[in-house]
Design a protein around this nucleic acid. Structure first.
Length: 118
DNA sequence: CATTTGACATCTT
DNA sequence: TAAGATGCCAAAT
C-alpha cells in the first residue's frame, strides 16, 4: 500500500479534537500538501462510510460553512454532528473559525491530542 | 490518451 | 458581499 499523501490527510483529520474544526486548506497544509485543499475534499469524498476513525465532519471550508449541500443526507448529518459536539452555527449556517478552528502544534501533526485541553 | 469534474483556496473585479 | 479567473491534481468519461 502506498497512497502516502492521502493517508497523511486521514491522519490529520483523525487528530482533530472533538468540538473543533479545520478548513480543507489547513488540513492540506498540515498533511504536507500545501495548496491542494481540493484533493483533501476529494479524499474525504472517496472515504468509505464504514470508516468512523476519520471525523470528516470536522472539516469545513475557509468560509466557515459546510461544503456539502444541506438538502442531502451527508450535509444534514455533518451539521447535526458538529452541533452535538458543541460547535455553534450562526443564523447563516456559518461557524466562527476564529473560535472553533483547531491549530495543531508545529513539528507534529497531532497524534498527540492530550495537549492543552483549551 | 484528451477532456471534464470536483466535500477548495486565494486573488481580483 | 458577490462573481469570475486561476491554481492543483486524482479519478471518471
Amino acid at each position: 500500500m502506498k497512497e502516502g499523501a492521502y493517508e497523511k490527510i486521514y491522519q490529520v483529520v483523525r487528530a482533530i479534537p472533538r468540538g473543533s474544526v479545520m478548513t480543507y486548506g489547513s488540513v492540506a497544509r498540515w498533511a504536507g500538501l500545501p495548496g491542494r485543499a481540493r484533493q483533501v475534499g476529494y479524499a474525504l469524498h472517496r472515504l468509505p462510510e464504514s470508516v468512523e476513525d476519520v471525523p470528516w465532519q470536522r472539516v469545513i471550508n475557509a468560509r466557515g460553512r459546510i461544503s456539502l449541500p444541506h438538502w442531502e443526507g451527508a450535509g444534514a448529518y455533518q451539521r447535526s454532528a458538529l452541533e452535538s459536539e458543541g460547535v455553534h452555527f450562526d443564523g447563516e449556517g456559518r461557524i466562527d473559525l476564529s473560535r472553533y478552528e483547531w491549530h495543531p502544534e508545529v513539528g507534529r501533526v497531532g497524534l498527540d491530542k492530550s495537549k492543552k485541553t483549551r
